[in-house]
C-alpha cells in the first residue's frame, strides 16, 4: 500500500492450509519496505495468537468482581463498573507480577470475547457476567509478538506507555483547564525523520504536527497529528521508545500507515458520543486551538543508544517502577523457534484513548489527577 514510496505500509492476511483466512489473522506494518513487511506479518500473527481461535476455556478461572476490584486493578478506569451490579464471576487469566500470580479479566484485553455474538464462547468458559458496560473498556492494547519473549515484552510495555501518554494528552486538553502541547520544530529533525515528515505531509495532504507527549514515566513518546476537518476525522500515529528518534519514526510511519489504510480499516465514530459533550470533545480530538498556543521545541537528542532488548526492557521497567507502576505479564503463546506472544497490563496506566474511536469511557484515577493541573502526577 502507499504506491511504493518509503516509509511504506504493508497489509498481511494469514491463511490456513486450506486457503481460508484464519480468524483475526490480519495486520499492518510500517516503515522501510522490509520493516513494514515484517511488521505486517508479526501483527497478523499477534492478532491470530491472541484471538478467539486459540482460546482455551480451561485456561481461565472465575473470579468474583469484588476480588478484582480490591486487587491491583482497582486503579483501572473500568473498576467503577465492578461495583456489585452483577455479582457473577468474570473469566480471568493468571498474570505474573512481582508478588506472584494475579487474576486479570479476559475482557480487558480481548474485545472478541465481549462481542454480542460471542455468547457461546463465554458460555464455554462458564462466564455469566454481564459485559454490557465493561465492553466499552475492552481493548487489545498491551498485546505484542516478538522473536523472543524479551522483545515481545518490550514492545508491549512501550505500547502501554504510548497509549497512556495519548490518554493523558486527551484528558489535559479536553477535561482539564487546557494543554499547551510541545510541538517539535520540523527544521530540527534529523534527515531520515525530516523525509518521513515530508512523506506524511504528502500522504495526508495536510500539515503534520509532531508532538512530544512524553509523560512523567520519562520514556520518549511522540505523536504525529493531523487536525480534523469538517469532512474527515483527525489522523494520528504514535510511538514510544527509549530512543526519541525511533519514537518519532514510529509515530510518523504509523500516520502514513493509518492514512493509506483508511480504505480497509474500519474506524469507530466519535460522533456517537454526542449525548456527553465533554467526552465528544475528547473523541473528536481537535487540537487546532491548542496548537495555536503550543510551545515549539527542538527535536530531543538521542542519549546513549538504547542497546539490546534485554537492557531496554530493564530500563523501561525501571522507569515505570520509579513512578510506582508494576507490569503484570502473561505469555499467551510460544511458537517453535521462540516467537512469543504476550499481553501486559500495567495497573493504573490510562487507556482513555479508546474515546477517540467512539467508546464511551472515562479516565481512571491517574487521568483525573492529570486533569486537575499541570503539576507532576502523584506516584502510583
Amino acid at each position: 500500500m502507499g504506491e511504493g514510496r518509503e516509509p511504506a505500509a504493508w497489509h498481511c492476511r494469514l491463511r490456513g492450509p486450506d486457503g481460508v483466512p484464519a480468524p483475526s489473522a490480519e495486520g499492518m506494518g510500517k516503515g522501510r519496505r522490509a520493516e513494514a513487511r515484517a511488521g505486517a506479518l508479526f501483527e497478523a500473527l499477534e492478532h491470530y495468537l491472541t484471538g478467539p481461535a486459540l482460546f482455551d476455556p480451561a485456561a481461565v478461572e472465575p473470579v468474583e468482581p469484588a476480588r478484582i476490584a480490591a486487587g491491583p486493578l482497582r486503579a483501572d478506569a473500568s473498576a467503577v463498573l465492578l461495583d456489585g451490579r452483577c455479582a457473577a464471576p468474570l473469566a480471568c487469566h493468571r498474570y505474573q507480577g512481582p508478588g506472584g500470580a494475579v487474576p486479570v479479566p479476559l475482557f480487558l484485553s480481548a474485545p472478541w470475547y465481549v462481542e454480542a455474538d460471542a455468547a457461546r464462547l463465554r458460555e464455554r468458559a462458564g462466564d455469566a457476567h454481564d459485559y454490557t458496560g465493561l465492553m466499552r473498556y475492552s481493548c487489545n492494547s498491551g498485546s505484542a509478538v516478538g522473536v523472543t519473549a524479551t522483545e515481545a515484552l518490550l514492545h508491549a510495555l512501550n505500547e502501554t506507555i504510548e497509549r497512556d501518554a495519548l490518554s493523558l494528552l486527551l484528558v489535559r486538553a479536553f477535561l482539564g483547564t487546557g494543554e499547551r502541547p510541545s510541538v517539535v520544530d520540523p527544521r530540527t529533525l534529523p534527515p531520515e525523520l525530516a523525509r518521513a515528515h515530508a512523506v506524511a505531509g504528502q500522504v495526508t495532504g495536510a500539515p503534520v504536527h509532531l508532538l512530544d507527549i512524553t509523560s512523567d514515566l520519562m520514556v520518549p513518546t511522540m505523536l504525529a497529528y493531523v487536525a480534523p476537518t469538517p469532512d474527515r476525522p483527525h489522523r494520528r500515529g504514535a510511538g514510544t521508545s527509549l530512543s526519541p528518534a525511533h519514537a518519532a519514526w514510529r509515530a510518523l510511519t504509523e500516520l502514513v500507515q493509518t492514512t493509506v489504510g483508511e480504505r480497509i480499516q474500519r474506524r469507530g465514530d466519535a460522533e456517537r458520543l454526542a449525548r456527553y459533550p465533554e467526552l465528544l470533545a475528547c473523541g473528536r480530538f481537535d487540537l487546532t486551538e491548542h496548537l495555536r498556543a503550543a510551545r515549539t521545541v527542538p527535536f530531543p537528542e538521542d542519549g546513549a543508544r538504547p542497546g539490546r532488548p534485554r537492557d531496554q526492557l530493564r530500563e523501561v521497567a525501571a522507569r515505570l517502577g520509579a513512578r510506582g507502576y508494576t507490569p503484570l505479564t502473561r505469555t499467551v503463546a510460544v511458537l517453535p523457534g521462540r516467537i512469543t506472544a504476550v499481553h501486559v497490563v500495567v495497573p493504573g496506566l490510562e487507556r482513555f484513548m479508546l474515546v477517540v474511536e467512539g467508546n464511551l469511557v472515562l479516565p481512571g484515577p491517574r487521568g483525573r489527577a492529570a486533569a486537575r493541573g499541570p503539576a507532576d502526577l502523584p506516584r502510583a
Binding site: 467503577v80 463498573l81 477535561l175 483547564t177 467508546n359 472515562l362 486537575r372
Partner: peptide, 23 residues
C-alpha cells in the same frame, strides 16, 4: 452506549473540578 449512574457521577466530578480550577 450509556454511562452508568456511578460513571455519570464521576464525569460530573471531573467537570466540576475543571470549572473550579478554571474559575
Amino acid at each position: 452506549q450509556e454511562l452508568t449512574e456511578a460513571e455519570r457521577e464521576r464525569l460530573r466530578e471531573i467537570t466540576e473540578e475543571r470549572d473550579e480550577n478554571a474559575g
